[in-house]
């Protein structure tokens, strides 16, 4: 596979994952608002903003209208939903011939649908509805991605992008809820919302009943091996995908990135929640994020931007 193509697939997938995550956070937030006081709602919005790394752009936001607008449409905010979708689509356009018609058309339609919409147009009646519908479209996109593309090298680059992005998003999400920087301590309802932010409410209840305990929630979102939005699940997918990409690359070229992924897997496989909850969670999450960035850099050096002299 062309290195440039691998790069575009990887970024397309990262942006799609980011867009889906953003959409879900806004949908859940807007739907849960009616159960909250103004102060609770504001604190909750602040956590959403922190989870999406949009603090700088949302510092003057006061009401839900502002938050929704900044997180969805604000051009200056690089993590705004519309920008993530546009970036995903721009990358897809670069590798149009590598994608199936279904994948391209789903993504293209998704962008074309949101692109002309303004905050005022959706704010009049039930704004959460739009985000729910977009979320459904994103699930459909994921479905056709899995069912219409061959699960070859390109698909594994999509997997790498998706799960490297997801691992980092989970880290930030937990940091926003458990970290020292939070505006107000979360209450029961906030833990429920956290699970919904991660599509984890029903799976969590099945595993641990509806008794919502912060430690158990953190453990579930970090270390559950079967839940697809847990850190561990994503790290496993990254490790697996790395063995499938660049099938013809010499072992020496694979070594660096595979070693980094193995180290991350060990950190997750042997993590203990009771060791972390005594104040060790924030540095642990920072370390995980750092390791994800190292894997990204090493992936580039091995497969995307290597010099000709290293292989001839």
């Amino acid at each position: 596979m062309l290195s440039r193509v691998a790069e575009s697939l990887y970024w397309m997938s990262r942006y799609v994952e980011r867009a889906e995550h953003t959409t879900r956070l806004i949908a859940v937030k807007l739907e849960s608002m009616i159960e909250q006081t103004h102060e609770e709602s504001h604190a909750s919005w602040r956590r959403v903003v922190a989870a999406l790394s949009a603090e700088k752009h949302a510092k003057d936001a006061a009401i839900s209208y502002d938050f929704t607008n900044i997180l969805t449409f604000e051009r200056a905010n690089p993590s705004a939903l519309l920008l993530s979708l546009r970036n995903a689509r721009d990358n897809a356009r670069q590798v149009r011939e590598q994608l199936s018609t279904e994948v391209w058309e789903h993504l293209n339609r998704l962008y074309l649908r949101l692109q002309p919409i303004t905050i005022d147009a959706i704010w009049v009646h039930h704004p959460a509805r739009l985000f729910r519908e977009i979320l459904e479209d994103m699930h459909a996109l994921e479905g056709v991605t899995n069912s219409t593309l061959s699960h070859g090298e390109g698909w594994y680059f999509l997997e790498l992008g998706r799960h490297i992005e997801r691992a980092q998003l989970i880290g930030r999400m937990l940091d926003a809820h458990f970290g020292a920087t939070q505006a107000a301590a979360p209450k029961y309802f906030d833990w429920l919302v956290l699970l919904k932010f991660c599509t984890a409410f029903e799976p969590y209840c099945k595993a641990h009943t509806a008794a919502l305990k912060p430690d158990t929630i953190a453990e579930f979102l970090l270390f559950d091996a079967e839940f697809p939005h847990s850190l561990r699940f994503s790290v496993d997918r990254v490790c697996d995908a790395l063995t499938r990409v660049a099938p013809g690359a010499a072992p020496a070229r694979r070594a660096a990135v595979e070693r980094l992924a193995g180290r991350l897997k060990a950190a997750v496989d042997f993590g203990q929640i009771d060791e972390l909850m005594g104040g060790g969670l924030a540095p642990y999450l920072a370390e995980i994020t750092h390791q994800c960035e190292q894997i990204h850099t090493s992936l580039y050096a091995s497969y995307i931007v290597y010099g000709a002299e290293t292989v001839l």
């Binding site: 596979m1 062309l2 090298e153 660049a246 013809g248 690359a249 001839l312």
Partner: peptide, 24 residues
């Protein structure tokens, strides 16, 4: 067939290669 841009190709010893994830 492959769709390439100029930056995907390089010439070494009068032979044209594409830069792929697995090598040239």
């Amino acid at each position: 067939v492959e769709l390439v841009e100029g930056r995907d190709l390089l010439v070494n010893d009068n032979v044209v290669y594409t830069r792929t994830t697995s090598g040239l």
